[in-house]
Design a protein around this nucleic acid. Sequence first.
DNA 1: AGCACGATTAACT
DNA 2: GTTAATCGTGCTC
Length: 205
Amino acid sequence: MTLSPLPVSFYNRSVLHVTRELLGQRLVRLIDGQRVAGYIIETEAYQGESDLACHARAGRTPRTEALYGPPGHAYVYFIYGVHWMLNCVAEPKDQPAAVLIRAILPSEGLDCIAARRKQARPRDWTNGPARLCQALAIDGTFNEVDLTSTQGQLWIEPGPAVTESSIIIGPRVGISNVPEPWRSIPWRFQVDLKTWKLPPDAKPF
DNA sequence: AGCACGATTAACT
DNA sequence: GTTAATCGTGCTC
């Protein structure tokens, strides 16, 4: 049932490639031995200290340590005093870059997701970076977890390919106070659900 | 030591 | 469309 997680080599390259290639892959979380999973359908790239939207703009600090760590590990941070965000670290160690996972399409453990997202409509279960963390019970304890191993109860498995024609590219969201060119640079990637051939077990919103 | 603000969300009007 | 929630982080004093 469980496939081998994507290897370190997948993450150890330009964060833009990783951001693009993570679309369609399967994010898996093991909760009490139960698989809770979904296909990644929206991502954003954050690259280096020069990217003024990237947390690494402040350089290496206790908070950004994970960004400078090995590729294939998680960078999970807390924001607005309320929400957790999941990122995948990319590029070689000491080169700060990460991919924000912004949305997934649920495929396994729907009952578990429903229980954790009780107050929301099914279409709002996992269509936001903080919502998917709530749905998969991801919090700060997952910071720096190795996503290339199943040991950490959180990993990413290979999923179906997404062709170029089914990808929508645009500027990153939620960074309106960041100066140009960073505010408008098209580093957000989304699967167009209207044209993507859905995996049989995917549960569309 | 104090302060402004954030890679968002849900619950309003 | 607007706004409160809620706190860690990084910067200034």
